[in-house]
Design a protein around this nucleic acid. Sequence first.
DNA 1: TGGACTTCGTGAATGAATGCACGAAGTAAT
DNA 2: ATTACTTCGTGCATTCATTCACGAAGTCCA
Lengths: 238, 238
Amino acid sequence: MNARSNSVEVMTTASRRRIPEAAVIRLPLYLRILNDLSADNCTQISSDQLAVLAGQNAAKVRKDLSYLGSYGTRGVGYDVSYLLYQIQRELGLNKSWPVVIVGAGNLGQALGNYGGLSERGFVVAAVVDSDPSKVGSVAGGVRVSHVDDLPLIVQSKGVSIGIIAVPAQYAQSAADLLVRAGVGSILNFAPIILNLPAEIHIRKVDMALELQILSYHEQCRMDARGVAVVSDPESVIA
Amino acid sequence: MNARSNSVEVMTTASRRRIPEAAVIRLPLYLRILNDLSADNCTQISSDQLAVLAGQNAAKVRKDLSYLGSYGTRGVGYDVSYLLYQIQRELGLNKSWPVVIVGAGNLGQALGNYGGLSERGFVVAAVVDSDPSKVGSVAGGVRVSHVDDLPLIVQSKGVSIGIIAVPAQYAQSAADLLVRAGVGSILNFAPIILNLPAEIHIRKVDMALELQILSYHEQCRMDARGVAVVSDPESVIA
DNA sequence: TGGACTTCGTGAATGAATGCACGAAGTAAT
DNA sequence: ATTACTTCGTGCATTCATTCACGAAGTCCA
């Protein structure tokens, strides 16, 4: 208890240390696992067990968690709900983040209706589209607004995260609109690289790209099985 | 031309060198950009230009491409269509990969209907579901089959990539079924860590997770703006 | 109380990825 | 042909990430 209070003290007085990006990416993963554990009334967990559940190495788990502070108890492990709280706090998930979805097509609607969002600290503040015929319909429990209202919505609701769910050819202008409206982070579902100011944080989701990565590995597997291929037409001709 | 033939010769005779995973992940990105360029009748591109389009550093682009062989021309750049061909070949995309989608719910149907798949070298061999009431309906131009037929489908159509689009609680058993049926790679949309043999390649897509990563960065931004927070309840009490 | 045991936290070693900087190899134009 | 210029390919240094390995700090039980 003493040690714990001490390190908390350090955390709040000293400015927040920067966490390596690789670790940041794993924190939501731990969070989800801890949530599940908590739902199962599990109160304690060791770095070893957590590592298994997360598909990681125990030392890595401990190091990742140590960036948050010293919240474990030697000889025992981590208190699930306390750790849960600390990770949530570090990720900024002790509040609910309003997000705005640009694009009310199939994808935009599916995202809006996805229940997992609200469970994980996000709320769809608005869905916007440029097509007037879509404005007024309902997606994700939210009436679709016109894209022209984006600045107003972002300002009034304090939105800082935007989700792009429009076809590739409109994605860049959607992104520009979001940035101009004042959004600081973007999650991009369109298969295109967005050109944005460096201070904007951006993550992308692209299924085709993921499949192509898998395709490479399957290809390697086939090559390894000795399926010799002469795959270059020029070398055949030559 | 001489040098080129030479390196191709080396490529096909020597066994394929292993490409670092970080580079593999970027190759599909270059591929997409080159495809767009090709559609715009652009025939040549320098590593510099490609780097800008991909949001990367030019040296990194050159190094990534060098893993495929020496396909550039000094003083000129890369031939778009030749490079396109080589990346496709390396990723195993000169053939079309049959994939099977497990889960015919909202997500499964959306994925099945997603046009980008066929354009990028994949074809939906089947959509399966365990719910008999869904069997027989059509998703993604494919009639939904019962999950019991999975082994048969995988074997007969030579499927090696499976996509999991079922709710989290069924994802592990869906994965087990896929593996038992003979699939070698899995793309997982369920928000859960799958426990699978090491030889199975797996990638995951999880929107909530991505948003939480962004949330962290927004949180940092707010902290940096000097919003001092006492966020630990115990330290307040103490 | 003390000794055996567990598990964290972290310094140090290893390994992977990135970016620089420069030689090599080409073009273009005089 | 020679010179000026462009751009690739890659060795090397650096930075970032992972893993090891061990001391510190706790529990548990006789």
